[in-house]
Amino acid sequence: MLELIAVKGIYILMVFAAAAAFASSLLPNLFHGALALAAVLLAVAGLYLSLGAEFLAMVQILVYVGAVMTLVIYAVMLTGRLEETVTPSGRIQRAAAGVSCAIFFVLVCGVLLSTNWPAAPGGNPLPSVKDLGIDLMKRHVFPFEVLGILLFAVLIGALAAARREKS
């Protein structure tokens, strides 16, 4: 019984997230689009929970919904002109984009469904946050350090690129 409710909940979450995803790409007002993206991100965090990835769900909410979304919404407000105007040529472009997306979706869907994804019998054990931390600092320490360097360098670059020039 409990399992059935969980299954229904997961599907409802998926439908909600998919609708919000299309909304974030379609809504003419960019501010609404950004809010729809936040909804998608929250729903995906819920899906992470359903997959047993509590740590990632937390990271998703903190980093994405907390930091990235704030940044995006801030930039949306700052640059103004929120409404998108759809021109006739834009409509043709939209139709072409829609068709190519649909083709892409069908093709990749075929690949995903026809593939027999290897699975460990009974599923994997869920790693605890402690396991993840140890894995990150032991086995994955090199990419972790590279990520640190990347974040530092990108931050410096972003500061310099967005700097106002004294003319």
């Binding site: 997230a17 998919a18 995803a21 299309f22 974030s24 790409s25 379609l26 960019l30 950004a34 998608v40 995906v44 995006v72 930039a75 949306v76 640059t79 002109r81 998108e84 834009g90 472009q93 939209r94 984009a97 829609g98 190519s100 997306c101 649909a102 892409f104 979706f105 990749v108 869907c109 995903l112």
Partner: peptide, 18 residues
């Protein structure tokens, strides 16, 4: 994949860089 495709659609059609 639906999320990914929705992203592709948005990236192809949005006229605002944001």
């Amino acid at each position: 994949l639906i999320l990914f495709s929705a992203g592709i659609f948005g990236a192809l059609t949005r006229r605002n860089a944001l």
